[in-house]
Design a protein around this nucleic acid. Sequence first.
DNA 1: TGTGAATGTAAATAACATTTACATAGCTAA
DNA 2: TTAGCTATGTAAATGTTATTTACATTCACA
Lengths: 250, 250
Amino acid sequence: MSWRKEERRAERGYHHGNLKEALLQAALGLIAEKGAAGFTFADAARMAGVSAAAPYRHFRDRDELLSSIAQRGFEQFESRLTGAWDDGRPDTVTAFERVGRAYLAFAREEPAFYNAMFESGLPVDANPALQAASERAFNVIRAAAERLAALAPRGAPRPPAMMMALHIWSMAHGVASLFSRGDAARRKLPMSPDELLEAEVLIYLRGLGFPTDRRAPAKGAEPPPVPPEAASGSGVPPGGTPGGPWGKPK
Amino acid sequence: MSWRKEERRAERGYHHGNLKEALLQAALGLIAEKGAAGFTFADAARMAGVSAAAPYRHFRDRDELLSSIAQRGFEQFESRLTGAWDDGRPDTVTAFERVGRAYLAFAREEPAFYNAMFESGLPVDANPALQAASERAFNVIRAAAERLAALAPRGAPRPPAMMMALHIWSMAHGVASLFSRGDAARRKLPMSPDELLEAEVLIYLRGLGFPTDRRAPAKGAEPPPVPPEAASGSGVPPGGTPGGPWGKPK
DNA sequence: TGTGAATGTAAATAACATTTACATAGCTAA
DNA sequence: TTAGCTATGTAAATGTTATTTACATTCACA
């Protein structure tokens, strides 16, 4: 349990000193390069400068290494989503969209984690810790959806927060999987994945009756019940934001 | 090029008679069971009753077999989506949703194809034929979106069809990936993946200003300009369909 | 300082992917 | 019909991987 010599002797000596971490890092790099499928246990060992059998002192098998990475990924993912949500500041809709962008950013900036988490074919539900980590990450979206649902404009039925969360999750995951990674990212799209997702979420929220031309509300006007336009207008003006969420219909 | 004896001698003899097809079928089964990652070329050969080297007479390597399956998958996918779209009958929105359900149905009923197409890590854009097949499938959604966009209600700006298509695709793919396959399917959801996607699409369409309580329009009332409520109401009544697309807010 | 627990290594096993040299069957042209 | 070319298979060899086992080296600490 004690890694007193981490820095001191990262490489030489009979004992590596920090093999577990070194293996995780090596694997992370390999997965980023060749995908979870291409990554090999032996390669990671080689990269860490140890024999092919050494990794088994730290991970039951290849899958456990992968799970560890996925787990760590979900934790970082949760952290980033939580940071993006920032407890709904400056206003719920803005923060909500920031969460969406954070989702895409994570997928783009941490391909190895994202791959291990969502594209490695790992049986997430077979590993309680992993499952829990995944759940915690999702709960950030869910909590945000909860807050958003609470803002449902008068006249519109209050949408189930869980459903909203699942919807948003599926949009973010769909965009990330299809357009924001790997070769799919090279498709010629009319807009960036970020813009695509933002428009998608905005249109969706509009469909629920939310006002979607976010704008920092007057001080202290939110969390309290209703944001600016929700209180005033008819909920959803058919025209919506000038030009719609997708910009000018030139 | 001549397979005169396909049926006659499917098994015995020095020559298999139909190895290529047999390998594809075997691989399909194996992928359905253990995923594209778990599938092995050797297993497929064994299953077809030939030596491990025989498959190389029909596929450059393991990846080419996988590509062939993905290709075939995209073709069947396109076929099913086209059938579901049914040229927009009985009305555009209904047909559009049917396409969404067909997407999920395909993911559920053809896990092997879906896996090879979207979860095998195949570099789709590296294979022109595969890329083209994928494009053709997407074009079904795109064409449907085109028709839908043309129905944009008066007062609402006409949304770019391509964007709509990408949005719908991402929703369907997101729901399929997250909730409609593998272990993720076992999550305790408040509704089925089908219902989830349907609600998502309906809310989205509502966000674009479309009337979403589909109902076969009066004969010949559609394609022509505007469907029932779009002509009458204010485009998007804040209340929308009674209870909203997700059912009664009990 | 002696010793058990932790961490590594080497060697062995079994499964794959892939290649190569050789065997056999099918088909076509003389 | 048959010689010979082509397509399709096989067996054996190579090189890599995952994983296990028996043995070696350190570490931590009583």
